[in-house]
Amino acid sequence: MATATFRIWRGDSKQAGFKDYTTEVSEGMVVLDVVHKIQAEQANDLAVRWNCKAGKCGSCSAEINGNPKLMCMTRLNSLPLDQPVTVEPMHTFPHIKDLVTDVSWNFRVKEKIQRFTPRKPDAPDGTWRVQQADVDRPQEFRKCIECFLCQDVCHILRDHHMHDKFIGPRFLVYSAAMEMNPIDAADRLKDLHDNGGIGYCNITKCCTKVCPEEIKITDNAIIPLKERVVDEYYDPLRRLFKIFK
């Protein structure tokens, strides 16, 4: 068995800092295993969020050696163990304690977005007829596990703190899933423009890079939404054309 040193962020909003823990590690372990081991053996009160330990619930987001990742899906053999592994909470959200942050802002943002609104059913039994090819895209977006890692890296939130003006990549994906769902009938474009702050996104693609579900956030969700918004609200010629059509 090898040993490794983990440099874990401890403390709360009042006082916090890194603390080193050295522990034995074995083949196949992920970062969350090590955090749990330290919690069970050396620091019972260590705060960490997790549920599924299988990359399915999006609870265990953290910054590992500075990279936003799921702790349960980051294997030790992907990290250099000859130096301490740093584990920090996400930076973009208010810190609660140790590795846990207050992500409640995300839940509040979602409530404000126009909910799914189905069109009239296609069949008398109240069901719809939709081809698989037409739901492939919304299904890609609905793979989202709400880990909020994309929100964590987006510079508009992380560096510019524009939480009250920009809903962030997660909720652009959420909106796109409904906008591109052939059963949904609502129109969220004006709202995305006026309140969602979609215009702030300058397509850096940092969000796409960290998404553990490999959702092509920028190319498949944000850019098409931006195009629709532009079509609808900025292009006077096209608008005129629409009116006369």
Binding site: R115, F116, P118, T127, Q131, V135
Partner: peptide, 20 residues
């Protein structure tokens, strides 16, 4: 299950466009 679809669930589809 059908009610879930009306609430926004996006199930895999059969060839004739129903829930697979």
């Amino acid at each position: 299950v059908r009610e879930l679809e009306a609430w926004g669930a996006v199930f895999d589809r059969t060839k004739d466009g129903r829930i697979l």
